[in-house]
């Protein structure tokens, strides 16, 4: 598994940055032979993680900092979304479908991340922040072609 490319982005917790983040990640991901459907799924997963950092991590305040780190290998795209906001008390509970600490929300963000990515891991500590790690594997045939190219 060879690292082909990497990217780090840091931006403030503004709602308009959800769209910039997903478009940037999608364009980075297009270096590998993901299908259009894969890219659409990656966009949703990134949007959900970044929106969570804004809404829950920083309580909709615009002063927080969000970092997105991308790592592309010949087999997969790894995405980390990190905030230094309020953190999650009980990660296991937060991952349950339809669980939300906000009655106005649906509790589907983690459901989408889980359904659309091949791997999801959440590190969080109350008062310190949250780091979501997600991996999307490149379709099998395409991965072999990519490793020959690089």
């Amino acid at each position: 598994m060879k690292v082909i490319n990497q990217l780090k982005m840091e931006f403030p917790s503004l709602p308009e940055n959800v769209a910039f983040a997903r478009v940037a990640v999608a364009s980075f991901a297009s270096q590998l032979d993901f299908t259009i459907h894969d890219i659409e799924e990656i966009k949703v997963a990134v949007s959900e993680a970044v929106a969570n950092a804004i809404v829950h991590g920083y309580g909709n305040s615009r002063g927080g900092l969000i970092r997105v780190c991308l790592k592309l290998t010949d087999e997969a795209l790894e995405i980390q979304v990190e905030d230094h906001g309020k953190g999650i008390e009980d990660v296991k509970k937060a991952l349950e479908p339809t669980y939300s600490t906000d009655p106005e929300r649906m509790g589907l963000g983690f459901v989408f991340m889980q359904a659309f990515m091949d791997y999801l891991h959440v590190d969080s500590a109350p008062g310190k922040g949250t780091r979501v790690t997600m991996v999307k594997n490149v379709p099998r045939g395409a991965a072999a072609a990519a490793s020959e190219k690089h």
Partner: peptide, 13 residues
Amino acid sequence: TYMDSSCLGVILG
């Protein structure tokens, strides 16, 4: 052209 849980929540509400 794109929708995620934030606006799905609005519709469900």
